[in-house]
Write a protein that binds this DNA or RNA. Sequence first.
DNA 1: CGCTGTCAAGACAGCGTTGTCAAATTTGTG
DNA 2: CACAAATTTGACAACGCTGTCTTGACAGCG
Lengths: 359, 359
Amino acid sequence: MVRGNVVRYDLEMNSEAPQSERSGPATMTDVARAAGVSIKSVSRVINREPHVTPKLRAKIEAAIAALNYVPETAARSLAGARSFTISVLFDNPSPNYTMMVVAGVYRACTENQYHLRIDTINSAVEPDALKQQLDQILRHSRSDGLVLTPPLTDNPAVLDFLNTHGIRYCRIAPIFDRETSLEVWIDDAAAAADVADHFWNLGHRRFGLVGGPFNHGAARTRREGYIGRLHQLDPSIIVSEADGGFDFEQGIAAGRELLAARRYPTAIFAANDDSAAGVMAACRELALDVPGDVSIIGFDDSWVAKSVWPYLTTIHQPISEMAHAATCMLLDRSIGAGDTKTQQLDYRLIARASAGSPR
Amino acid sequence: MVRGNVVRYDLEMNSEAPQSERSGPATMTDVARAAGVSIKSVSRVINREPHVTPKLRAKIEAAIAALNYVPETAARSLAGARSFTISVLFDNPSPNYTMMVVAGVYRACTENQYHLRIDTINSAVEPDALKQQLDQILRHSRSDGLVLTPPLTDNPAVLDFLNTHGIRYCRIAPIFDRETSLEVWIDDAAAAADVADHFWNLGHRRFGLVGGPFNHGAARTRREGYIGRLHQLDPSIIVSEADGGFDFEQGIAAGRELLAARRYPTAIFAANDDSAAGVMAACRELALDVPGDVSIIGFDDSWVAKSVWPYLTTIHQPISEMAHAATCMLLDRSIGAGDTKTQQLDYRLIARASAGSPR
DNA sequence: CGCTGTCAAGACAGCGTTGTCAAATTTGTG
DNA sequence: CACAAATTTGACAACGCTGTCTTGACAGCG
């Protein structure tokens, strides 16, 4: 069978002992022949299966190295039940967040010889339409696992679809139905409470909040943590709130709204960095000094936090580590499809220049 | 042969006529049986091969629809010579740029039933080390084509490696060795000249430039286009230059440097939006009003352009369309691996609030 | 010493496609 | 109308690997 005209990448390039006969990259059969064993044994070594004596393993590994052998993913996935691909599902307005997630998943994938696939869906539709989108995506790309990012993490239709089809997934920063799947999260409530404390200790007494998208679970938790702590500190506190949407433009609008009041808040917590940057822009527009007149704290410590002036005080969320951890859980074959396992990572308040004592 | 415990996604979910016997998704054999033809004919229809009468084609297409059949990528790539995957190669400091490229490639991939793979490499190393990185990446993921983004686009080692291995690629915004491969670009020089005109018409006479990374070809072209046009306008003009690096922090540094002069430039062109945002921050720091004291123009019209205040006047580069076009060229099988084809897209100066007349 | 139990290693049949080549069918021509 | 040529269609063997089953080897035990 003569192959097509597409030139295949020749894996022999760096080989110490280039084979004379073989045309393309070395196959498992080549390795088996070189090591004088059966292909099944090579397969066992590749897949870390038991029932291989150290001696045999060493011989095979030597042959693999000598031939510069790399297993063919297509064949593996055709013969076995795995696709060697992890998909990340997005419906996130923030490119910064997205990039960090991708970075984390990508790292985990390369570490495990897996491939990364990215898919985006629009969750602002009817549950049925949403399920159809998922159906489309999964129909065309059989993944060994899905990494779910907010707000998909807490979308009942998505979860329901995945559960009924027995598809393996890991949720990042879930809020609802906790402990029912694989999950990676940080304590958003505690982090938001820390923000409240930080403002309070700085001497602020008039507080504002820019919320996140209504369907974003973690954003709600942040709100509750912030306001809850503030009420602990002083039950009579009234927090002025404005809707944000996790993006700059809505952040500006929210900032304008909050700062239009006669006695505007001197301390504003925005549910993510992008909207915090928007609030900062609103301050500028109104000739309000940051942090002199208004202190601002964001959330994520994403790339924007250091793309505004003054640099943003924010909660560092290890997004890329969370994504990495999520992917590793997915890849851990000792964990079944319906199993539960949660992993909590640490956040940390990064004090930069956007929050200070009121003057 | 009993399959593993991984539950496969059941493609029959929406099927009108669910099959009784079959366990998993419909295969080509199922379709062939349903249509009363051979599997090869089904294959021909799927791959749009010639030698199929309209009548047969219709019958097969009906069967495909009825069974909700989707070809199995793994089998296709094992049997054929294609992997049905396109890789995007990055070494780009700007997450905004990256996201837009990914969006464009992603769109082209889904349109063509292809998969998207993302790979990053570090090109700031010796050519040999670079080739080794490429080797690693390509060894593990046989792609049908690579989308090369700057600065990889103009990296001789990368190009050389790809050429010697006969790997198909498309360059986005190439500068060197033009017309030697598939290419998508915009006229960076003309765009930069437009920036110069815009400043000039606004009444500016003292000009500054924040350059891009030294290895980024397009950034150099922008510099030349800008300075060239300025010299046409007035040969005695001296443009003060500072090194930027395409990111916010280096933008700040460059801004500080430029604005430290007694007669600082009132018009500054930064080679991308991120560094333009940095210059803007430097203005703020020095209590210089934008655009009152200093006008700033960026490049890309990326997401940052509308994440700073005032909104950034910038050159809109259709990044995601360029990426889309690049991918489509790669996917067009009528174009051979070594063929040449270039495609130019339009840029456009977006006048927003960061550039105005000097006061 | 022979029998069984245990573990290591191999033989072999698919997995769902595509490429090749041969067979069947249609079309064109004298 | 017979026969060659062109075209459509089908049979079948890969592709490179994994799951299952079988054989082989070797120790433990009565």
